[in-house]
Design a binder for these strands. Structure first.
Length: 562
RNA sequence: GGCCCGUUGGUCAAGCGGUCAAGACGCUAGCCUCUCACGCUGGAAACAUGGGUUCGAUUCCCGUACGGGUCACCA
């Protein structure tokens, strides 16, 4: 077989050589140890949690090492491409702190455009580059055209599937398939010429020299050392439309673009042998690989399953909708990614997560189950560390889209809203009342008359005469300039005068000696003022509400008691 | 079924030949407390399994079971 002639026949228009490509895309000049990583999505939908995971690793590793992160769009499957998906992907990633230094980035118009010297960054635009290497492989007798059509292949598969139903003889099936595939290797130059003359489409297949009996020693940065069988499948390099498959594009692009660390989900592990073979054929230096464990969910039978796009909590936009701050999600991702992250966080409560020394060795080898309990706990902690101003900014950002009515109230008086959000914040032991923006209204809505409701919250167990007496006395003694202690002393005085215990210890020692305790007295006031059985410190609440509004509410309750 | 990867409490996990087997979430008893939210002190709860190796295995080796991934002109 004259491979040079075959190459010319197959790729008559390709005049450049791999050497030309190397010259055009020289190695990156980066400091020692700098990592070059990438996010390489196919624009088929939204970012999901399982995708944010390895991307965060890529981002941390790159930026922590003084390297860089770039974005490459793997749009090699025209059939599955969703218009606008790439833009959406970039936008949501940006919310989660993933900033790209290079690649397909949004321009001022919000459209994906190339930034950087190693483009194009959309694989559909790189066909000429792939073809240079494809031609070279043909020339070297390491790749060959296959004219078996997709349909013929499908029919073959159908037969196999039917057999599979009758008796699951996987081995026989694999063997028959392999035999069928091997037939593709037998062709003559005349066959090729005839097909080409007839305009028949073809795919380019690798001519595999692998022997599955032989094992390949590989090191994965998270999985460690392992042995995998060599690849013996003549997998497709170029599809009939001339666009490469993932495997081929991965090898060419990651080499040309200078990727030092290929970070991807562990579902890629089974095809690693293919990639290693390709790098060898192409004479490329093999990058370091990191196969990240999958995020799991529980299915209806209680089994773990890979978190897939349809699952609750998969779509990152779901988190926004539910009211999770991006900072919360990032924090949760970090706790899952590095087992010592939480410990670090306890010691460094106020540092940004990017200060954490991310460590590959501390990554989980097995997958982990998505846990909303943990997420919610993280959420409360993260938000409790934020300033009232930060909370206000993020909260209003959320309500703007998801709760316009509440938003209008918050925006009408930022100072008022911020003073509410400041309750119990800033100290060593901050309150943790909410973790989601969607929970805030329930927590602080009573500060707004529009959300304050009174009647249905008064328990029957309250003695109306006592309630009335407490409120009247409280109003009479209230002085807005009192400090908290003085304020509470007055409440205690009222309690005693009505036969309630002023001291909780005394009450607990002998509950029968009193009508109730100062806790009950406080509760009367609390219900009147907040409409709720539980609320933050009443003294503070009253001060934020102001005397006028406080009294109006007390009066409103008195009216219903009359 | 083949091939890979994995298996410490319900969940996430420390551990790396000798530990009363950390910690966090959740659950729970109590304390603190004007309610709540914090905080604090406790509690229940785990090394899948069988063989080795060893004075000694959660830790090393082999098998078994279970779980996951994958086997496309999809990525």
């Amino acid at each position: 077989m004259d491979y040079n002639r075959l190459a010319e026949l197959l790729f008559p228009d390709v005049t450049e050589t791999p050497a030309d490509m190397e010259a055009k895309y020289p190695s990156r000049q980066l400091p020692e140890g700098a990592k070059v990583t990438r996010f390489a999505p196919s624009p088929t939908g939204f970012v999901h949690f399982g995708g944010l995971f390895p991307t965060t690793v890529a981002e941390r590793l790159a930026h922590q090492s003084g390297g860089m992160l770039y974005l490459r769009i793997e749009d090699t499957d025209a059939k599955r491409e969703v218009p606008g998906a790439a833009e959406g992907l970039i936008r949501t990633l940006a919310r989660y702190g993933i900033q790209f230094d290079e690649g397909a980035i949004l321009n001022e118009q919000g459209v994906v455009a190339d930034h950087g010297a190693y483009g194009p960054y959309k694989q559909s635009l790189r066909a000429p580059i792939y073809h240079v290497y494809a031609k070279q492989l043909v020339r070297e007798g390491r790749a060959y055209p296959c004219f078996t059509t997709e349909q013929e292949l499908e029919e073959l598969q159908q037969v196999n599937k039917k057999e599979e139903l009758k008796n699951t003889d996987w081995e026989a099936q694999a063997q028959s398939k392999r035999a069928e595939m091997l037939k593709n290797r037998e062709f003559t130059m005349e066959d090729v010429e005839a097909h080409l003359a007839a305009g028949d489409p073809f795919v380019l297949r690798i001519l595999s020299d692998g022997d599955p009996e032989k094992k390949l020693k590989v090191t994965d940065l998270v999985k460690g050392n392992m042995e995998i069988p060599e690849n013996d499948e003549d997998f497709v390099l170029l599809k009939s439309d001339g666009i490469p498959t993932y495997h081929f594009a991965h090898a060419v692009d990651d080499h040309l673009m200078g990727t030092t660390h290929v970070i991807r989900g562990e579902e890629w592990l089974p095809s690693l042998a293919k990639h290693l073979q390709l790098f060898r054929y192409l004479g490329f230096k093999v990058p370091k690989y990191m196969h990240i464990a999958q995020i799991m969910r529980l299915d209806e039978n209680g089994n773990k399953k890979k978190l897939s796009k349809r699952d609750m909590g998969a779509n990152m936009d779901d988190y926004t909708r539910m009211g999770y701050s991006a900072r919360v999600v990032c924090e949760y991702v970090m706790t899952l990614l590095n087992s010592n992250y939480e410990e670090w966080r306890m010691q460094n409560p106020d540092k940004p997560y990017t200060d954490f020394p991310f460590n590959i060795k501390k990554m989980s080898v097995s997958g982990c189950l998505f846990d909303f309990n943990k997420l919610n706990d993280v959420a409360k902690n993260v938000i409790s560390r934020m300033s009232a101003e930060e909370v206000y900014a993020e909260l209003t950002d959320w309500t703007k889209d998801y709760d316009p009515d509440f938003h209008a109230l918050l925006a009408a008086d930022p100072a008022y809203a911020t003073s509410i959000l400041a309750i119990g914040r800033g100290g060593k032991k901050p309150r943790k009342d909410f973790g989601l923006w969607s929970e805030v209204k329930d927590y602080m809505g009573f500060f707004y008359d529009a959300y304050f409701t009174l009647l249905d919250t008064i328990p029957d167990t309250f003695d109306k005469q006592d309630v009335k007496a407490v409120i009247e006395q409280f109003k009479a003694s209230y002085d807005e300039s009192d400090d908290m202690n003085t304020w509470f002393e007055k409440v205690k005085t009222i309690a005693s005068s009505l036969g309630f215990a002023a001291d909780m210890k005394a009450y607990k020692a002998d509950p029968t000696a009193f009508k109730g305790s100062v806790a009950d007295v406080s509760m009367f006031l609390r219900v009147a003022v907040t409409g709720k059985m539980n609320a933050p410190d009443l003294y503070t609440v009253m001060h934020i509400l102001g005397k006028e509004r406080t009294f109006a509410r007390l009066d409103a309750l008195l009216t219903t008691l009359a």
